[in-house]
Design a protein around this nucleic acid. Structure first.
Lengths: 133, 133
DNA sequence: GTATTGCTTTACGTTTACGTCAACGTCAAG
DNA sequence: CTTGACGTTGACGTAAACGTAAAGCAATAC
């Protein structure tokens, strides 16, 4: 038995398999394909998913958990995949990175404020509860 | 001139004023009212917004920036306003707080992962750029 | 007066993110 | 060879979050 079979590097998956694994429906996966977020290989008519597609799907779902619209998510993951041979392209990418970071850091502030407030609120509630006991 | 006028405590605003200030449309503000997220006073037919409404609107918009759906936002800010005289109510509120926190902390992890990845990506880009120079 | 400005409601339109059929192809099992 | 199990492409439906247009009152501006 060849060693390659043990850690199969170019393993592929069917749409049902990745849908189940990422806990989304096949419809969702195909919707992301319609929007150009994933582009699985085609063998004849059938979709074949590679590790690359799984990576992208993970990025998409995290983007969604963070509340980004799918179109915006596409520009982001496209950014990661974009060819950046020339200096001008790299400058552009670095600019985009900066915008992203600004956005993400705003979110982080919002998030930390929310968590802090929640903590203070909890303290008050516990104090009220103690008072009742 | 009475001292109260200097730091007017029960100042009120029109819908246009708060919409402009929070950089949303009046339509948006009214939509939030339709969903029960804000309940401004009515003088006759006209809406009069108090400081309380501004606080709520700020909470709503932060919730939106964090990607929460409006219905979920409503349950959260209702939680903050809910009467909690009895122990059973306080227990309930504390449970809800716990759920909220779990959610927010998941988001924080996602967010920090995203920021980290962005940083690594930037490093690689800068390295590429240096190589070209 | 009336004309404009600002607020109101009602109601239908739009975009995003899928869900939900319907109708069909295909491949291995019985 | 037909029956599933899984795959495919449309095409239409839906919920959320507003946008937009129509039509009306109400106070100030001229």
């Amino acid at each position: 038995m060849p060693a390659a079979a043990a850690t199969e590097v170019d393993q592929t998956w069917t749409i049902r398999e990745i849908a189940d694994e990422f806990e989304v429906t096949h419809r969702t996966v195909r919707h992301y394909e319609d929007l150009g977020l994933i582009t699985p290989e085609r063998r004849g008519t059938v979709r074949v998913y590679h590790r690359r597609d799984r990576t992208r799907l993970a990025l998409i779902l995290r983007g969604k958990r963070l509340g980004f619209p799918l179109e915006e998510i596409r520009t982001i993951i496209d950014l990661y995949d974009r060819p950046r041979g020339k200096a001008s392209q790299l400058e552009y990418v670095l600019d985009q990175i900066d915008e992203r970071r600004t956005d993400l850091e705003q979110r982080r502030r919002d998030l930390e404020d929310a968590i802090t407030e929640l903590g203070e609120f909890e303290r008050r509630c516990r104090a009220d509860l103690d008072r009742l006991a």
